[in-house]
């Protein structure tokens, strides 16, 4: 048994990632990148705010990789709708104005990555979240 990132008790050793991305083409590439990581599993890919919120509330999500512009709703809507469910949040977006970064941080995002320039850092960020989880006290 080990503590999940959101403080809930978990018996899993694999980090569960929810990918929220409205472009199927980009979702494929992000999944491909995350699959290179050991003990990291993308448990679902959704493209809208409601499905994202439902997954976090009902599933065992450790990390959300979250786009801000979605098919319906927005990434900010997802952040506002999380309530007490607080997985680690990695924003991956093309909206790179400082205003977005500030707002995301205010709403609880842990990381903010520019989709086109910081994409190569995504695996490192998710990998470090997995390592932090591994070393959390049982």
């Amino acid at each position: 048994m080990m503590l999940g990132l959101n403080g809930s008790v978990s018996s899993r050793s694999v980090l569960h990632v929810l990918l929220v991305e409205d472009s199927a083409m980009l979702a494929d590439r992000v999944c491909e990148e995350l699959r290179t990581l050991e003990d990291v599993e993308v448990i679902a890919v959704v493209d809208n705010q409601k499905d994202a919120t439902d997954w976090v509330r009902n599933g065992s999500v450790d990390v959300i990789v979250l786009d801000l512009q979605l098919r319906q709703g927005s990434g900010f809507g997802v952040l506002r709708g999380l309530g007490d469910c607080r997985p680690a949040i990695v924003i991956l977006t093309n909206h790179v104005l400082p205003e977005y970064r500030l707002c995301a941080k205010r709403l609880g995002a842990d990381h903010f990555l520019n989709k086109s320039n910081d994409y190569e850092r995504l695996a490192d960020v998710v990998g470090s979240l997995r390592d932090t989880r591994r070393h959390s006290p049982a």
Partner: peptide, 18 residues
């Protein structure tokens, strides 16, 4: 432009990084 052109450009950038 965001969904289609943006998707293509960013996907290309991701593939080039790979």
């Amino acid at each position: 432009l965001h969904d289609e052109l943006g998707g293509l450009l960013v996907a290309t950038k991701m593939d080039m990084a790979w």
